[in-house]
């Protein structure tokens, strides 16, 4: 991507619903790198991340803890100075003109309040609109709409501090949207929300993309959120992109289940080989009177096959615990690929 080039963006067009805007790249990240420290102690938090997002698209950035999601997002937003690489938002190179970029992008960041809890909901929206260069009086109708959409209209005059956690989260999102940017970054938007609030928020995000053409980049650990909201998923591991696919291509990821299985006594070598050949098993732990292993399966039903093999070998099942699937393992299982190779590393069960 060339430096300081400027392509036409929605903001440059005067007509609403410009058909040319469809498919227009609104965010382009090219070879983004962030390294902390140097020499042997250097930590490559982000290691050559590249991806692009079209206007109105919802893209999920997934990855296990420490994969570099938050650093990637903060580097795109300029909150972390990247070591190398370029970021273009709405055709503007972020390194050249951060202020122009902030006309287009807003963010709700993980673990942060993002709003002033001692101000009321409406006051927050007004303040953040002004901070984003908007006239709060002109934006009043939009703010009222936002509050209605988030079921916060009757809370408009209450201090944020008095609201529930889910409502506070929605106020943060509304305050981010009150700035009226066309690209929104959301870092773990449903973290800490109850199921109902999470479902409501998902519906709202989808509506913003579909009806208001807002581009959303969200990071989440919550596979359900990603599956129900995102058009596309970028999966990060060790600071690198290991997948960038439409969400429907990764449907297997969302069905994947992981279990910790414990059986009595030791598992004969042949049975163990049979299991490892047919399924993705790991962390085999042979104890005095029992054997324990983890198995990641493309879907929960496949567990019967594992149990059948154990039963046939006359191993008494002691326990089966559900585990949170390791995202990277899951991805490798589902696609049978690894970064930079077409090899079938880890694709045992597929």
């Amino acid at each position: 991507m060339s430096q300081a080039t400027r392509r036409p963006s929605r903001s440059d067009t005067s007509s609403d619903g410009d058909p040319e805007a469809a498919g227009e790249t609104v965010l382009a990240v090219d070879n983004l790198q962030k390294t902390y420290g140097d020499g042997d102690d250097a930590v490559h938090a982000v290691d050559g991340v590249s991806f692009a997002v079209d206007r109105g698209e919802v893209v999920g950035v997934l990855g296990p803890n420490g994969a570099g999601k938050t650093t990637t997002i903060k580097s795109i937003l300029g909150l972390v100075v990247p070591t190398a690489g370029t970021v273009e938002i709405a055709g503007v190179n972020a390194a050249d003109d951060a202020r122009a970029v902030y006309q287009h992008v807003g963010a709700m960041l993980e673990g942060a309040r993002n709003t002033y809890w001692r101000l009321t909901v409406a006051e927050n929206l007004r303040f953040f609109a002004a901070l984003g260069g908007r006239d709060p009086d002109v934006a009043r109708d939009r703010h009222e709409r936002l509050l209605e959409q988030f079921n916060l209209a009757d809370k408009a005059d209450e201090p944020v501090n008095d609201l529930s956690r889910g409502q506070k989260q929605k106020v943060s999102l509304a305050a981010t949207l009150a700035r009226g940017t066309d690209v929104v970054f959301l870092d773990e938007p449903t973290l800490g929300l109850d199921v109902e609030a999470s479902v409501e928020l998902r519906r709202e995000l989808r509506r913003l993309a579909d009806e208001e053409d807002i581009t959303i980049v969200l990071s989440s650990h919550d596979m359900d959120v990603v599956e129900s909201v995102c058009d596309r998923v970028v999966i990060l591991a060790d600071g690198q992109v290991i997948a960038d696919d439409p969400v429907e291509d990764l449907v297997g990821v969302f069905e994947t289940q992981a279990y910790r299985v414990t059986v009595e006594g030791q598992v004969p070598g042949g049975v163990r080989t049979q299991l490892t050949d047919s399924y993705h098993t790991e962390n085999w732990d042979v104890l005095e009177d029992r054997t324990r292993f983890d198995v990641t399966l493309a879907d929960g039903d496949t567990l019967h096959g594992v149990l059948d093999v154990l039963q046939a070998a006359d191993r008494q099942l002691l326990d089966v615990d559900g585990l949170e699937p390791d995202l990277e393992d899951v991805f490798l299982d589902v696609t049978g690929t690894a970064p930079g190779s077409d090899a079938d590393e880890g694709g045992d069960g597929e």
Partner: peptide, 14 residues
């Protein structure tokens, strides 16, 4: 502490 510092940073005013 409030997480608003980063919001202030991301203002188009600079």
């Amino acid at each position: 502490q409030w997480g608003t510092l980063e919001q202030l940073f991301m203002s188009p005013f600079g």
